[in-house]
Design a protein around this nucleic acid. Structure first.
Lengths: 159, 159
DNA sequence: CACAATTAAGTTGTGCACAACTTATCTGGC
DNA sequence: GCCAGATAAGTTGTGCACAACTTAATTGTG
């Protein structure tokens, strides 16, 4: 099961070629898309991970999930989220408060400013989709394949 | 051309849902795959970006590309590569030398140790491919779609 | 030849990611 | 009710990424 990617030449030689590797394609595409987001999100003073946190909060605006719950959605730990949330709080977009019933938990809620920002980012998904050059069907297929890969890896990790 | 991803509900509501976004799927898959690489590359004392640099050097072991040429392959700038290469040099895997004919350039070559390491990483592409749970045809299709997206974005950026 | 503009690499500062650790709180078994 | 183990968030340290900048060398044009 060598020579994974293309079936000629020596296995060793071929599989280690950069342009043949799915992982490099994934890594490069992820960074390229973040490059598309950057100037757009700059207008709102946001980074891409900060925008992702807001996406989660906008989905359930009355929920105020904990740091762990945010982390479960985004697959990020407190080492990443704690300072990020501190910056979002500094920008006046979210508030953090200790849970009353469990003092270990910190609940993250939207401020009015954070809630209002949602209305201003409507056009972003469209802009991003256009930048990929893919059609809707291709985007959906790509998303589903990637989600399947991610889920497969995470399932393996849990066992 | 709203409601990109699925054709029901309000455009605003749907397109901003995390799980519907291709970009999040890409970001999550990229990090998940890096998680698969990490314990494997740890054995060799490498990070994933360091491994990518070695892939480029292994492709043309007598070439000693410059920092810029490496950067063009990997789409990384000197701000990322300079400290990374310093670490690879510290690990005894590469050497950096000023070009004789153009003192601005720094050429990056493999040491014997760096060259030898190639023989020990043969199995990595196979291990990674297995972890994705995808078949060869799917991997190739995924790689090509992602490469197309990346190229589209970079082409737009240049104009 | 002079020198302004360009190019190459490196540096500095910010913000992720993530491992390893700390601190504070909670829970279950006795 | 006590306390060992678990859990939640935060902190520290390392290594990318990338913007903005610096320094040094080269190139093109007059």
């Amino acid at each position: 099961m060598h020579n994974l990617i293309v079936g000629y030449g020596s296995a060793v030689t071929d599989d280690l070629v950069l342009r043949r590797q799915v992982c490099f394609a994934l890594y490069a595409a992820s960074r390229a898309l973040t490059d598309v987001y950057r100037p757009i999100l700059d207008e709102f003073g946001l980074t891409y991970p900060q925008y992702l946190v807001l996406l989660v909060l906008w989905e359930r605006p009355d929920d105020a999930p904990t740091v762990s719950e945010l982390g479960a959605e985004l697959r990020l730990d407190s080492g990443t989220l704690s300072p990020l949330l501190k910056r979002l709080e500094g920008a006046g977009l979210v508030v953090r408060r200790r849970s009353a019933r469990d003092e270990r938990r910190v609940e993250v809620g939207l401020t009015e400013r954070g809630r209002a920002l949602r209305q201003r980012v409507d056009e972003i998904p469209l802009q991003i989709a256009r930048a990929t050059g893919l059609g809707i069907a291709e985007l959906v297929a790509l998303r589903d394949t990637l989600t399947r890969v991610t889920d497969t890896i995470h399932r393996q990790k849990e066992q």
